[in-house]
């Protein structure tokens, strides 16, 4: 059970308090109707799925309830850092 730093609570808490929420920085297009099918597919389904550094989202669902972002190594599962939603990709 990994330990996760919530940037809102500024506390390190166990994974059971959190829900994983997929890859980060995939913003919903402002006008989806303007997108081609291929562009919409990319938004919906295409994921980086890297071996290594991964920008991802978590929600402190059994804590403050906030969504936030994290950089984690998918090979070691170790977090590099977590940061608040809305902050630029790190």
């Amino acid at each position: 059970m990994i330990l996760i730093h919530c940037p809102y609570c500024d506390d390190i808490r166990p994974e059971l308090e959190f829900a994983y929420a997929g890859e980060a920085h995939i913003a919903r297009p402002a006008d989806p109707s303007a997108l081609s099918d291929a562009e919409w597919e990319k938004y919906l389904f295409i994921r980086a799925n890297p071996r290594g550094r991964h920008n991802e989202r978590w929600r402190h669902v059994h804590g403050c309830g906030r969504f936030f972002n994290a950089v984690r190594d998918t090979v070691t599962d170790k977090f590099e850092l977590t940061y608040k939603a809305g902050e630029p990709r790190k």
């Binding site: 929420a21 989202r57 669902v61 969504f67 939603a85």
Partner: peptide, 13 residues
């Protein structure tokens, strides 16, 4: 609720 929170917090803050 989780889905709505997701949109509210991250897409339309």
């Amino acid at each position: 609720l989780n889905m709505m929170e997701d949109y509210l917090q991250t897409e339309w803050p």
